[in-house]
């Protein structure tokens, strides 16, 4: 049986940022230190199918802004309080914690929760990548509701949301804002048998392997990864919008990259919270739900869309999403149209 102990934590943390932004932020360092402090002897990692089928599993994630996490420090009990609140509402103890996604802080917070609660961490997550909305998960695709959802804020607040699945995001965002910009959310309560059905499996072990020094970056991409181009950012433009009225946390923008070699194509990366569409000389070459990210040529860190600046040398990579995202339902939830691009 796998476990994440102090040594594995370092590999896990390294693996969690291979295709995730914000690895250089203080919030990530904070989450890393936090996890180090609570990890103790280690957190067991279990497959969902190995649990008692009726056992309650809870997804834990950071909700809101990671920047806010770095500025308003946590008390340390937020993950535990959020899960306990959900347990009180459901009248059942959580038998395991699962991640919503495994990008940087969001990989570490569930680990911290599992350590604090003394329960195992499920080997898997709800996206296989990162999406901006809480409801953009394979759990939702599997028919599991994010609600009831418990939020624990840094000042001891506790909020329980109970609503229709498609209203969760609408309610969550203002509440998180009033909690100080971030909170730990415990959500998607479900039985282990359901989790086994909807989880993107094996991603925790994958990150542990990918985070091993010397492992190739592609090891962190379970369904394949390819390099779209290497080039230099020529321009970052505000995009004139992608059509639909969208409730996404950030403004659309457009990043132009000139391929440095080969055909010297003009690559346009349309970003809305994340890069959702890549055009090469006007032809679509990659798009959501696959994950498109820019890796800085110097340092090898993922470049945040907001931090992209002209002159940066980047490698544009496309991480293939889990097959479930390429189903009709998956595309509706996490495909281009979910980001307002009518393609």
């Amino acid at each position: 049986m796998t476990a994440v102990g102090p040594r594995e934590l370092e590999r896990f943390a390294a693996g969690s940022r291979l295709f995730a932004t914000g690895a250089a932020d203080s919030s990530y360092a904070l989450a890393h230190d936090w996890a180090r402090a609570v990890i103790g002897d280690g957190v067991p990692v279990r497959q969902a199918s190995d649990l008692d089928p009726g056992a309650l599993c809870v997804a834990v994630t950071l909700a809101g802004s990671t920047t806010a996490l770095g500025e308003q420090l946590p008390r340390g009990d937020e993950p535990e309080r959020a899960v306990r609140a959900l347990e009180r509402r459901l009248g059942t103890r959580a038998a395991a914690v699962v991640a919503l996604n495994l990008a940087a802080e969001n990989a570490l917070i569930p680990l911290i929760a599992a350590a604090a609660l003394g329960v195992p961490l499920i080997d898997g997550d709800g996206t296989g990548r990162v999406f901006p909305l809480v409801e953009q998960t394979t759990y939702t695709l599997g028919g599991i509701s994010a609600a009831p959802l418990a939020l624990a804020g840094a000042s001891g607040e506790l909020v329980l949301l109970e609503t229709a699945p498609d209203r969760v995001e609408d309610l969550l965002r203002p509440v998180v804002l009033s909690l100080g910009g971030w909170a730990v959310a415990a959500c998607y309560p479900m039985a282990a048998r359901d989790l086994a059905r909807v989880v993107v499996p094996g991603t925790v072990s994958l990150l542990l392997r990918a985070g091993t020094p010397g492992a190739p970056r592609s090891a962190a991409a379970p369904y394949g990864v390819r390099t779209l181009c290497r080039g230099r950012i020529l321009a970052v433009e505000g995009s004139t919008g992608h059509g639909g009225e969208l409730a996404l946390p950030s403004l659309p923008s457009s990043i132009l990259v000139q391929e440095s070699d080969g055909l010297r194509r003009l690559i346009r990366l349309e970003a809305h919270n994340e890069i959702v569409l890549a055009l090469a000389d006007g032809a679509a070459v990659a798009m959501a739900p696959d994950q498109i990210c820019m890796i800085a040529a110097t340092g090898g860190l993922v470049v945040d869309v907001d931090k992209a600046a002209p002159g940066m040398e980047v490698e544009v990579m496309v991480v293939k999403a889990a097959p479930v995202w390429h189903t009709q339902e998956g595309l509706a939830l996490g495909g281009l149209r979910a980001f307002g691009i009518p393609l």
């Binding site: 433009e237 995009s239 919008g241 349309e270 055009l279 032809a283 679509a284």
Partner: peptide, 8 residues
């Protein structure tokens, strides 16, 4: 509507 659309 936007550079990406025109480029495509």
């Amino acid at each position: 509507g936007g550079g990406w659309a025109v480029e495509m």
